[in-house]
Design a protein around this nucleic acid. Structure first.
Length: 481
DNA sequence: AAAAAAG
């Protein structure tokens, strides 16, 4: 309806003119009136008397606002795009957690985790998420910059402690990540004694007939789907905050789309939807904007995505045996801190684990072929520093936050099906190090025929991946990071 | 290719 009122090219030109005005003005009521009157005057002949037809003006204004939101950007700094669904409310950011007027217990929880000030993404995202009435948000920010804490805070702040049923639902792509996010909820909500978390993940079996009374549910898609539709333990209609962590994989057709969208569509229209990830491929971003009603938006240009605190290198190798040798050469150095080694397949990860173990190197393996009990144990040992080197698949590519990880090795470069580099996965993998501004190193073991893929990745992110010679590998101890 | 539900 609104779009019918809008008149094609004339509208585009008009909104462009408006756009320049708009970005120069502060966002005030006056501003909204200006937009409204401009909108009214640009509806050809459909209005004679603006005084009498407030509704039409409103509709037109809304349509214009939508257009503005698509086209124009309210820039808070040159590399970040922030769009607010309602430009009449001021775009503001917070420099302290106090400004958010949170409950005392929640504030205590935040400080107990060692957070003193909001991170960059939190400065902008928190006021948007906590605004009343609740608004949807699609947010992109580099890995390790505090996305999790941001949406956990949003969930905790919206729980009604008097109501004993699920009110907040967060979906994550893997078992390990769901566990980790749940721990953040537990820590941050430590002083909110009446708020509780439940894990909807594999292995968390509920006896028949049990009711879910916890307010916050963290889970993986399959189990959540089971709890919602088959066992009817969660009433999606009552969910107030819905979070998709690693949102791009969760809605990508290659990924978990079917499951996530089925859940998302069953939510009430009142439910606040929050989508977070470090990466959104263009097509996925467009899809996200289609399925999320009137979203606020925080977006980064892809050149801004690679973290300059992570040094990237590659070693050119002949074959797999060669890559293995190169890896063994640096084993001593990578165990100074902790390291994650990524392989493309479970089989390859297993093979590498067996080889390294036989050569007397202490490593541990985490992949989807293990039982959830084994997986929980391994990731815990790694977090505790009892294991220094983790060999894994893409199961650990995203979200896993272990502060002591200083080195990431891509034993296999991440590829999509059609021999194309998997840019998103690459970025997430190397983002396992360099958390919260710390320094990190990333090594890519590259077979000669895979070099073009690596160069494509380098070009895509406009980053610098330096070559190291295999015989110079002991040089890495001298690399400053 | 990996991940994600049980039974």
């Amino acid at each position: 309806m609104a779009s019918l009122l809008w008149g094609g090219d004339a509208g585009a030109a008009e909104s462009e003119r408006l756009n320049s005005h708009f970005s120069n003005l502060s966002h005030s009521r006056k501003n909204l009136r200006f937009i409204k009157s401009t909108a009214a005057s640009s509806i050809d002949g459909s209005i004679n008397n603006t005084e009498d037809d407030e509704d039409v003006v409103d509709l037109a204004a809304n349509s214009l606002l939508n257009k503005l939101i698509r086209q124009s950007l309210v820039e808070s700094s040159h590399q970040v795009e922030v769009l607010q669904k309602d430009p009449s409310s001021p775009l503001y950011s917070v420099k302290t957690f106090e400004e958010l007027r949170l409950k005392e217990e929640l504030l205590k929880g935040i400080y107990s985790m060692g957070f003193n000030r909001p991170s960059k993404i939190q400065e902008m995202a928190l006021p948007m998420m906590l605004a009343y009435p609740p608004q949807n948000l699609i947010a992109q920010s580099q890995s390790g910059t505090g996305k999790t804490a941001a949406f956990v805070l949003a969930m905790l702040s919206r729980v009604n402690t008097l109501e004993l049923f699920p009110q907040c639902l967060c979906l994550a792509p893997t078992y390990e990540l769901a566990l980790q996010t749940g721990r953040v909820v537990e820590q941050m909500g430590k002083f909110c004694v009446d708020v509780q978390v439940m894990y909807a993940i594999r292995g968390n079996r509920l006896p028949r007939g049990t009711d879910v009374t916890k307010q916050i549910i963290i889970g993986t898609p399959g189990t959540v789907l089971d709890w919602c539709f088959k066992r009817k333990l969660i009433d999606l209609n009552k969910i107030r905050v819905f979070v998709l962590d690693e949102a791009d994989v969760m809605i990508d057709t290659q990924g978990f789309s079917d499951q996530s969208i089925r859940i998302q569509r069953a939510l009430s229209s009142e439910c606040q939807m929050l989508l977070f990830s470090a990466t959104f491929e263009d097509s996925v971003w467009q899809f996200a904007e289609r399925i999320i009603p009137d979203p606020n938006v925080i977006k980064l240009r892809k050149e801004e995505l690679t973290l300059n605190n992570i040094r990237q290198y590659y070693v050119l190798c002949e074959n797999r045996k060669d890559k293995y040798q190169a890896l063994c050469n640096i084993y001593g150095s990578i165990t100074i801190g902790q390291a994650i080694i990524f392989c493309q397949t479970r089989q390859n990860a297993k093979w590498l684990t067996v080889e390294m173990t036989q050569d007397g190197h202490q490593v541990s393996l985490l992949s989807g072929e293990l039982t959830v009990e084994q997986r929980a144990a391994i990731i815990q040992r790694f977090r505790d520093g009892k294991e220094k080197v983790l060999i894994t698949t893409n199961v650990c590519a995203r979200g896993i936050d272990v502060k002591q990880v200083t080195i990431v090795v891509n034993f296999d470069i991440p590829v999509k099906q059609r021999e194309e580099p998997d840019y998103e996965t690459y970025l997430h993998r190397i983002g396992r190090t360099g958390r919260f501004g710390k320094k990190g190193l990333a090594f890519n073991m590259i077979e000669v025929n895979k070099l073009p893929l690596l160069l494509k990745i380098q070009e895509h992110f406009n980053s610098n991946i330096k070559q190291l010679n295999p015989e110079d590998m002991d040089e890495i101890e001298k690399i400053e990071y």
